[in-house]
Write a protein that binds this DNA or RNA. Structure first.
Length: 321
DNA sequence: CGACTTTGACCTGCGC
DNA sequence: GCGCAGGTCAAAGTCG
């Protein structure tokens, strides 16, 4: 534990800068050639990434296979995915191409109702005794009046990997860290963040690959119910800017918007030095079985369009009426 | 003082 | 039933 903490402390002192973005499961509408390139053909069962999200079919098993997570990120292994993705998600939210398009709201409602119940309990306890000595356990014990057999469902999630020295990447939203856990078989802890916006239930997990510590694995869960604060500040431009003009030089970027990252991967690859690119490829190979195929050529050719991005990361994109 | 982070305890689900 | 690991809570601490 102290090891993790030390590492974490150490990392937080690293200047906020990143070398290269690797993203991943944006298999939506990707030309088959890309699927092959990324080794994501298993994911091509989904007609779109949106389907993936909406249908709660973010198949971590497939992701894991596609990423070759088996060793790099054991926490994403298939066995665990069942529990991670919702304890089997009511008997199997994973793997099956669920038609539950409302799964995310259901999950949110369920969580809300749990909160309400708990709040009521806390209020009752406080009102009743008013004693500071109320044991946590007493409060938490009543935290789970869930019907038997009723399992918690999870918001749809997607993950991507980023080559970065900082763990928590700037994505335009404000996040509050609510937990950190040591990850089995990994010296690096996993951090849990929640969107600070009221009523927004989006969460994200950030962890560092222990096989390639330069790679940060970010997992988003849920969809933002609001616009990015950055967008509202007129900074939005993060994305629009990516669409309209060349991105800032990565070497000078302080942070980046995740959506922008999506856009920038191709550009980044072309703007990084050969050395960096080679390193990136090495990093890639560990997770994606990506050959030495030139990232630049390929990614430049397949610069995603806006619609694609919106499907990939709907919540990152400003709404265009 | 509010927003945020840290951190130990607790909850949950799964496999054995 | 038990142990493990992931996930969450919330008090205490920190920072601007």
């Amino acid at each position: 534990m102290s090891d993790n903490r030390d590492q974490d402390l150490h990392r937080t002192r690293i200047p906020r800068q990143f070398d290269f973005g690797l993203i991943h499961p944006n298999h939506d509408h990707q030309p088959p050639v890309e699927m092959d390139l990324y080794g994501l053909d298993e994911l091509s069962n989904y007609t779109s990434f949106t389907d993936c999200l909406r249908g709660t079919v973010v198949d971590y098993g497939a992701l894991a296979r596609a990423f070759d997570f088996s060793e790099a990120a054991p926490q994403v292994d298939e066995k665990k995915m069942k529990s991670v993705d919702g304890g089997g998600g009511g008997g199997g939210t994973t793997r099956q191409n669920s038609s539950v398009s409302s799964s995310s709201t259901e999950a949110a409602n369920e969580e809300d109702s749990r909160r309400v119940e708990k709040d009521q309990v806390v209020a009752a306890v406080e009102g009743g005794g008013g004693d500071d000595g109320v044991e946590k356990s007493k409060i938490k014990a009543v935290n789970k009046p869930r019907k038997k057999g009723e399992k918690r469902e999870r918001e749809p999630r997607f993950a991507f990997m980023t080559k970065s020295e900082v763990d928590h990447l700037e994505d335009g939203y404000r996040w509050r860290k609510y937990g950190q856990k040591a990850v089995k078989n990994s010296p690096y802890p996993r951090s849990y963040y929640r969107c600070t916006s009221q009523k927004c239930t989006v969460k994200k997990r950030v962890e560092r690959s222990f096989q390639d510590p330069t790679v940060v694995i970010t997992t988003y869960e849920g969809q933002h119910t609001h616009q990015s604060p950055a967008t509202l500040r007129g900074n939005a431009g993060l994305l629009g800017h990516s669409m309209m003009a060349p991105p800032p030089r990565l070497s000078t970027m302080r942070g980046f918007n995740a959506a922008e990252l999506l856009m920038q991967v191709p550009i980044t690859a072309t703007t990084t030095t050969t050395t960096t690119t080679n390193n990136v490829n090495q990093g890639f190979q560990g997770y994606m079985n990506l050959g030495q195929t030139s990232l630049h050529e390929h990614q430049q050719l397949h610069f995603p369009d806006y619609g694609l991005l919106q499907d990939i990361v709907p919540s990152f994109l400003p709404n265009h009426p």
